[in-house]
Simulated scan of single mutants.
Amino acid sequence: MHVDLSQPIETGMQTYPGDPAVAVRSHATHDEHGARVDAIECGSHTGTHVDAPAHTVPGGETLDAYPIDRFVFDAVRVDCRDLGAREPIPAARVSEPDPKPGSATGTEPDLVAFWTGWDTHWGTDRYLDHPYLSPEAAERCADRGFDVAVDSLNPDPTPTANAGDDEPEGFAAHQALLGNEQLIIENLTNLERTGERFELRAYPIALESDGAPVRAVGVDSADRSERME
């Protein structure tokens, strides 16, 4: 089974506060020009996208530095739906992906997908007040070599009027992960349709940049096994 985990790119869609607005408009039409062409304006972190180290690390790698297979991940889904608005994801959650003896894969994952369920708030102000990775959780992912994906706007707290005084400032999770050359995928959706262990394919457009939109697809382990036999 293949599951589309991507938010659609469309005019006026939600973005990180201050990022470029998104516009998809007609440039040419069949009636006037004999072919349809749309003009698309957006930032490098539009919709479901991948962050490269250059996003927060001066001199960090841009997306073009990675081979295409770097964007195929053996992912484990960690259930964080019990967490509320602006609540930190504790480091203890990162321990959950450890494979059990005799498991189907018997290997550590490449990526941890934190399933908060916050994609249900996509397009609303509440989407900005998502749970976030505690600095300790981000450091643990970096230490274990895990890339990270979230079904929210940001692995760090997004600044809003609801921010608490005890929240970490800036981009601590980004710095911990991207500083260790672990990739970050943001704004996933439909994680409830994947298994606990799945293959995540998130190919960015061929762009020499700090990030780029991806078409994120989840493939369950059964489909992968059948193709390998």
Rank of each mutant, 00 (worst) to 15 (best):
G102F: 15
V214T: 13
R70C: 05
L183D: 02
T15W: 03
V150P: 10
E226D: 12
A212H: 02
D223K: 04
G145P: 12
S221D: 15
A138S: 10
L183I: 01
Y132P: 03
L133R: 05
G170L: 08
L83P: 00
A35L: 14
D110K: 02
D165K: 13
L153Q: 08
E196F: 02
G164R: 15
H121Y: 14
P67I: 11
A149L: 08
D51T: 00
S152L: 05
A92K: 10
V94S: 00
S209P: 02
A149Y: 01
D69V: 01
V112W: 01
L183K: 11
Q175R: 15
A35W: 14
C80E: 00
G18M: 05
R93D: 06
H30W: 14
H27L: 15
I68H: 04
P155S: 13
A85V: 00
A149W: 03
T124H: 13
D151V: 01
R126F: 01
L5K: 02
G34Q: 09
R86D: 11
A85M: 12
T116E: 06
A104S: 10
V50R: 03
G211T: 08
V148M: 06
A173W: 04
V76F: 13
G34C: 14
S221F: 12
C80W: 06
G218P: 08
T62M: 13
A142P: 04
P168H: 07
L133N: 10
L183P: 06
G102V: 06
A138N: 10
D74R: 12
G170D: 06
R201G: 01
P204V: 04
L188R: 05
E32A: 15
G18I: 11
R36Y: 08
G18D: 07
R140Y: 00
A137M: 02
A163Y: 07
G60M: 11
D82I: 03
E139P: 01
V57K: 05
H130Q: 12
A65M: 11
R36C: 08
I205P: 00
E139M: 07
P101F: 13
S209T: 13
